[in-house]
């Protein structure tokens, strides 16, 4: 089975992916809601910006993150002044790049499910005395929950597989930023580590497959009107 160091890699990957998705989930949902429901100047530009990491070479995304989060960069500077720390070469940085790369997938899935919510149900709820917030909480959110969950799980799977932006942005530091794909890449550079590569690749396949199946099952259950949570 896996060696302690390899278990460490798996645990780090899950931590980075988990933190990346739980922090970006509300942002993704807000963006999806905005794109699905509002018309505003610059909507096309916002849509494009969100989707950019999907089509940009990951090394470019990583480099842009590096510029922004460097201690003399716009966001990195603020962080430095506020906390005295940096996300460079830290697992927090790996989580940021994973979140940015997963965001377009999450927003797409969520946007589709919000657009699929029958707005006539929302107006019915209004006539029954519910204000906008209650309508959102009791109608829009539960009915778009399948997409919210599917988007989250899909994003999680994507975050686990994140490679190019992460290695560019926060480098490949064992125990700190060396997630599964980076560990596999490092092993590939060392002659005679085929067995370790095989083991880590198996874990990678299992995790990704598990996430996809979970997303599918949850979506179907929610689609049948069964409460998911």
């Amino acid at each position: 089975m896996l060696s302690p160091a390899e278990w460490g890699v798996v645990a780090l990957s899950l931590k980075v992916g988990g933190v990346a998705i739980s922090c970006s989930l509300p942002i993704a949902f807000a963006l999806a809601y905005l794109l699905a429901r509002q018309n505003f100047a610059g909507k096309v530009v916002l849509d494009g910006l969100i989707h950019l990491p999907l089509v940009l070479p990951p090394v470019v995304t990583g480099w842009l993150l590096l510029l922004a989060f460097a201690p003399d960069g716009p966001i990195g500077g603020m962080l430095m002044r506020a906390t005295g720390g940096t996300v460079l070469f830290r697992w927090t940085g790996a989580a940021i790049s994973a979140a940015v790369m997963a965001l377009p997938l999450m927003v797409r899935a969520m946007r589709l499910s919000i657009e699929a919510v029958d707005r006539r149900l929302e107006s019915a709820a209004r006539t029954l005395g519910a204000g906008r917030w209650r309508v959102f909480r009791t109608i829009t959110l539960p009915l778009s929950l399948p997409g919210l969950i599917a988007g989250g799980v899909l994003g999680f799977a994507r975050a686990l597989g994140e490679f190019g932006a992460t290695i560019t942005f926060v480098s490949n530091v064992p125990g700190e930023t060396q997630t599964l794909p980076l560990a596999i890449y490092s092993k590939l550079q060392v002659p005679g580590s085929d067995a370790a590569v095989f083991r880590l690749a198996c874990v990678s396949v299992l995790l990704s497959l598990g996430a996809l199946i979970a997303s599918e099952i949850l979506t179907r259950r929610a689609g049948r009107g069964i409460h998911v949570l």
């Binding site: 006539r120 149900l121 709820a125 005395g129 109608i139 009107g225």
Partner: peptide, 20 residues
């Protein structure tokens, strides 16, 4: 006046029951 404060009871042509 917003719909939720009009004191209206509206039965739509389709039932519009909340499916969840």
């Amino acid at each position: 006046v917003p719909p939720e404060r009009r004191g209206v009871g509206y039965v739509f042509q389709e039932a519009r029951l909340f499916p969840h």
